[in-house]
Nucleic acid binder design. Structure first.
Length: 619
DNA sequence: ATACGAGCGG
C-alpha cells in the first residue's frame, strides 16, 4: 500500500537527500524515515536509492532498502534496475530484477514504462554476448507501448549496433517518429562501429544539427576504421566550423597522429592539452604514450607515462609495447616487472609487448618463460600474434628447428603472420629449404601474398635454378598478385610530404635526385655497393631504371635532408618493410651527414645513428 | 513530483 506523506515533509527530506555528501548522512536520513514511519514511502525510497547508488555506488545498501519495501512500484523498480545496470558486476542482476518484476505481475502501479528500458538494454549489452536478449526486450518495448519514445529508440538502436546488427539499428532509427541530435549521433557512431564509415559520413552530412558529440563520433569512427587522413581532415573541418574539441575528440585525433607518424600535430595537441588545463587521464595518457612511441619518441613517451597520476593496464601496455617496438627491450621488460610488482594484472596486449621486447633483445629463455607464465600465471589464451612473436623470437636467434617444432605443436590454425615470421627467419639465416616450405604454406593461405613469391624467386635465383624462377614468375602473373606500392612520408613544418617509389612528381624532385646522387658518391667511399639480392626481394621495382636508388624512403630522406636544419632528427614512416639495401644505405647516410634518422616501417622502428641501427640488423 | 539515450586509450 502506498503511504501518504505530507508534501512539505517530503520536500524537506528530499532536499536533505540532495545535500548529503556522505553515506552517513544518508544513513541518518534512512533512520529518520524509519522513526517517522516513512520507510514505506516509495517516492522517498526511490530518491534514497538513486542518491546512494549514483553518488556513492552503495549498491548493496540500495538493494537491501529495496528488498525491505513492500509492493515496489514502477518508479522504485526503475530506480533499482538503473542502479544495478550502472554498477559494474551487477548488470545481470538488473535483468533478473526485471524478470522478477514481470513475475510479480504488471498491474498499473508496476507496469514498466519508457524509463524502464534504456537501463535494461544497457545491462543486456554488458551481460550478453549474443543479440537475442536485445530482441526480446525489443518485443517488450513494443508490448508496453514505449516504442515511439526517443530515449527508448535511441538506446535500442545503439544496443543493436553494439552487436554489429547495423540493419536492425537502422530500421529502429528509420521507424522513430521523433529523432533528436542524440538519436542521429547514435546512428552515426553505430554505423561507424559496424565499419560503415561512408554511410556514417552521409548521415553526418544530413544531420539537421550537429554538436560536439556528432563531430567526435565521426572523427573517432574514422580513426577506429583506419581512415587516419580522413580523421585529421575531419578534425580540421571541425576546428574550422568553430566547434571546440574536448579530450574525447583529441584522443581519437592523437590515435590518427600515432598511426600516421604525425608528430608535429601530436605535439601541438599535447601543448593544447597542457595550456587548457586538461590533466593526463588514463585515456589521454595512453593515447599520448602511443603517439610518441609510434613517432619513435620513446623518451617523450616515458615522460608522459611518468607524469600520469594514475596508470592502468592500458597505459602500461602502451609504454611496454612502445619501448619494445623501438628496440628498448630491456626497459620494456623492466617496466613489465615493475607492473607485476605493483600487482597490476597484465593482459594479452601487454604480453605482445613483452614477447616483442624479448624478441628484439634476443632473450630466448626469458621469452619462453614469459610465454608460459602468460597461460600458467594469468590464464591468458595466446593468440596468433603471440605465437608469431615466439616463432620470430626463436627464428631470429637462429633456432630454426625449434621454431618449426613450435609451429607444429601449435594448438590453433596457423596464419600468414606465423609462417611469415618463420619465413623472415629463414631469410636472415639463409635456410632456403625451410623457407621454401614456409613460402608454399603462405601461398596456400594467401595465393596473392607477395612475400611468399618474392622469397621463392630469390631462393631459386640464388641456387641458380632459373627454370624454377620462371615458374614462380608465371604463378605470380596467374595469381594476379598486386604488390602494395612502396610509400614513405615525412613531416616538415607540420606538412606531410609523401613519396612513392621512383616518384618524380614532387616540385623539388630535381633537387632530391641530385641530393641522392651526391649521397651515392659519398657512400661509395664508405664501402657501399648496391645489394643485388634486394632486387629480387622487390619485384615491383626491378623493371625500373636505377631501381635501388629510388625506394620511397630514400626520396623522403633526401627531401628531409634538404628541408631541415643541420644536425636535426629526421623521421620517416614507410608503409612496407625496409629492404636490406636501403637499410644498409641509411646506416651509412646517418654517419655521413651526421644526422639521426628514425624510420618506422610496417614492422618496427629503426633508429639510425652514426652508422648503426637500433635493430642491430635484425628485422 | 521521481528516472532514461550518443563520442575516448594499448
Amino acid at each position: 500500500m502506498q503511504v501518504k506523506t505530507p508534501i512539505s515533509l517530503q520536500r524537506t527530506l528530499r532536499s536533505l537527500l540532495q545535500l548529503s555528501s556522505t553515506v552517513n548522512h544518508l544513513k541518518q536520513i534512512h533512520c529518520r524515515l524509519l522513526v517517522l514511519d516513512l520507510h514505506q514511502d516509495q517516492f522517498l525510497i526511490t530518491n534514497l536509492i538513486t542518491v546512494l547508488s549514483q553518488r556513492f555506488r552503495a549498491i548493496n545498501y540500495s538493494f537491501s532498502i529495496f528488498t525491505h519495501t513492500h509492493n515496489p512500484n514502477t518508479f522504485l523498480f526503475n530506480a533499482m534496475i538503473q542502479a544495478l545496470s550502472e554498477t559494474p558486476g551487477f548488470q545481470s542482476n538488473a535483468i533478473q530484477l526485471y524478470i522478477l518484476q514481470m513475475r510479480y505481475g504488471t498491474e498499473p502501479t508496476r507496469r514498466p514504462n519508457r524509463f524502464t528500458f534504456p537501463p535494461l538494454l544497457k545491462a543486456c549489452v554488458a551481460t550478453f554476448r549474443l543479440v537475442k536478449p536485445i530482441q526480446e526486450i525489443h518485443a517488450q518495448v513494443t508490448k508496453f507501448g514505449t516504442y515511439s519514445d526517443v530515449y527508448v529508440g535511441t538506446t535500442l538502436l545503439d544496443s543493436y549496433s553494439r552487436y554489429s546488427e547495423v540493419e536492425f539499428a537502422r530500421r529502429v532509427f528509420d521507424e522513430m517518429p521523433i529523432r533528436n541530435v542524440v538519436s542521429w549521433n547514435s546512428m552515426v557512431s553505430g554505423l561507424a562501429r559496424c565499419g560503415e564509415v561512408c554511410t556514417a559520413k552521409e548521415l553526418f552530412e544530413r544531420m539537421p544539427d550537429k554538436n560536439l558529440v556528432s563531430w567526435t563520433s565521426m572523427i573517432s569512427g574514422y580513426a577506429q576504421n583506419g581512415y587516419f587522413n580522413e580523421t585529421l581532415a575531419m578534425f580540421d573541418d571541425m576546428v574550422a566550423s568553430g566547434v571546440k574539441p574536448n579530450e574525447i575528440t583529441l584522443v581519437s585525433v592523437l590515435s590518427a597522429c600515432a598511426n600516421l607518424g604525425a608528430l608535429g600535430l601530436g605535439k601541438r595537441i599535447h601543448s593544447f592539452l597542457e595550456d587548457n588545463g586538461y590533466g593526463l587521464d588514463l585515456f589521454l595518457g595512453s593515447a599520448l604514450i602511443d603517439m610518441y612511441s609510434k613517432c619513435g619518441m620513446t623518451t617523450e613517451a616515458l615522460q608522459v607515462f611518468d607524469r600520469m597520476l594514475e596508470r592502468n593496464v592500458v597505459a602500461f601496455s602502451a609504454v611496454i609495447v612502445g619501448l619494445a617496438m623501438n628496440g628498448r627491450g630491456l626497459e620494456a621488460i623492466r617496466i613489465f616487472e615493475d607492473m607485476r610488482f605493483q600487482g597490476m594484472l597484465p593482459n594479452d596486449i601487454t604480453f605482445i609487448g613483452v614477447l616483442c621486447a624479448c624478441c628484439h633483445v634476443g632473450l630466448v629463455d626469458k621469452g619462453q618463460y614469459y610465454f608460459h607464465s602468460m597461460t600458467r600465471e594469468y590464464s591468458i589464451v595466446p593468440k596468433l600474434q603471440h605465437y608469431a612473436c615466439m616463432v620470430d623470437l626463436l627464428g631470429r636467434a637462429g633456432l630454426l628447428d625449434q621454431a618449426y617444432q613450435f609451429i607444429t605443436e601449435m594448438p590453433i590454425k596457423l596464419d600468414v603472420v606465423v609462417w611469415g615470421a618463420l619465413l623472415g627467419a629463414c631469410r636472415i639465416h639463409c635456410n632456403f629449404e625451410l623457407g621454401v616450405h614456409a613460402a608454399h604454406k603462405i601461398l596456400e593461405l594467401d595465393p596473392q601474398h607477395s612475400g611468399g613469391f618474392v622469397f621463392l624467386s630469390s631462393a631459386y635465383a640464388r641456387s641458380g635454378d632459373w627454370d624454377a624462377v620462371k615458374k614462380v614468375r608465371m604463378m605470380m602473373e596467374k595469381s594476379g598478385m598486386k604488390k602494395t606500392p612502396g610509400r614513405s612520408w615525412i613531416e616538415i613544418n607540420n606538412i606531410v610530404h609523401q613519396f612513392f617509389a621512383g616518384d618524380k612528381s614532387h616540385p623539388l624532385s630535381d633537387k632530391i635526385y641530385m641530393k641522392l646522387d651526391e649521397l651515392a658518391r659519398l657512400m661509395e667511399f664508405e664501402g657501399y655497393t648496391p645489394n643485388v639480392e634486394s632486387v629480387f626481394y622487390d619485384i615491383e621495382e626491378e623493371e625500373k631504371e636505377q631501381s635501388l636508388n629510388v625506394h620511397s624512403e630514400k626520396l623522403a630522406i633526401a627531401f628531409g635532408l634538404l628541408n631541415s636544419p643541420e644536425g636535426t632528427l629526421i623521421r620517416i614512416v614507410k608503409n612496407l618493410r625496409v629492404c636490406d639495401d636501403c637499410h644498409f644505405a641509411i646506416k651509412l647516410i646517418s654517419k655521413i651527414v651526421r644526422r639521426d634518422i628514425i624510420l618506422r616501417d610496417s614492422n618496427r622502428f629503426h633508429h639510425f645513428t652514426g652508422g648503426t641501427c637500433s635493430c642491430q640488423d635484425y628485422w
